[in-house]
């Protein structure tokens, strides 16, 4: 009986933790949406702040929690603020970025959060370029891709530095 209660408590704990992370990721996504509307030079160009939460969840918690947060964020933000095409951009980007997380996990200690963020940001943008290629053709995608890669490298480094800093404090707060 006590063991069943313990298991149930753990499930509730994971659920609440995912919900909390999802809320933070959505707030960051919303902030990004405001920024992209005001300052973006290319469609759907974003800083990638919400990916900080997914990356932290992936390395500090578990793959399934990171996947749950990432996929729910894409779906909810798509329903609330996006159009059909922006949903496809986000979904493909998130899918590719998740692949980047596995690549970083495979690289292990050879790479830090900075390298991980740059890999994920570049792969995220590559995923968006794939969607652009499907909707507008290869020519449009090949135009956007180099600029998206530059933004990926720059903003990926920025979020990676943030991640290196946050990860020191994060585990103490969330894992309790």
């Amino acid at each position: 009986m006590a063991m069943r209660l313990q298991v149930k408590e753990n499930k509730v704990r994971i659920l609440v933790r995912c919900a909390l992370l999802l809320c933070i990721a959505m707030v960051l996504s919303y902030l990004e949406n405001i920024l992209v509307l005001r300052f973006a030079l290319l469609p759907f160009m974003k800083i990638g702040l919400a990916n900080i939460i997914v990356t932290l969840a992936f390395f500090e918690l578990s793959t399934s929690e990171a996947f749950a947060v990432s996929s729910m964020r894409v779906i909810i933000m798509g329903v609330l603020f996006g159009s059909m095409i922006s949903f496809f951009y986000s979904a493909m980007g998130a899918f590719f970025a998740f692949g980047g997380l596995f690549l970083s996990k495979w690289l292990g200690k050879r790479v830090s959060y900075i390298g991980t963020s740059v890999i994920c940001a570049c792969l995220h943008n590559l995923g968006q370029a794939v969607v652009a290629a499907l909707f507008f053709g290869l020519r449009v995608a090949s135009f956007c891709l180099p600029y998206l890669l530059i933004f990926g490298a720059v903003f990926g480094t920025f979020t990676g530095i943030l991640l290196n800093f946050i990860s020191q404090k994060y585990k103490k707060v969330i894992s309790k």
Binding site: F59, S104, K105, L107, G108, K109, R110, V111, S112, Y113, I114, G115, T116, V118, I119, C122, L149, I150, G152, A153, G156, T157, G160, N164, S167, Q168
Partner: peptide
């Protein structure tokens, strides 16, 4: 688990991009 500190591979990845 990944490194908590900046590594050479980070810089190489940025340079490649």
């Amino acid at each position: 688990m990944i490194s908590k500190k900046r590594t050479w591979l980070d810089i190489i990845i940025i340079a490649i991009a």
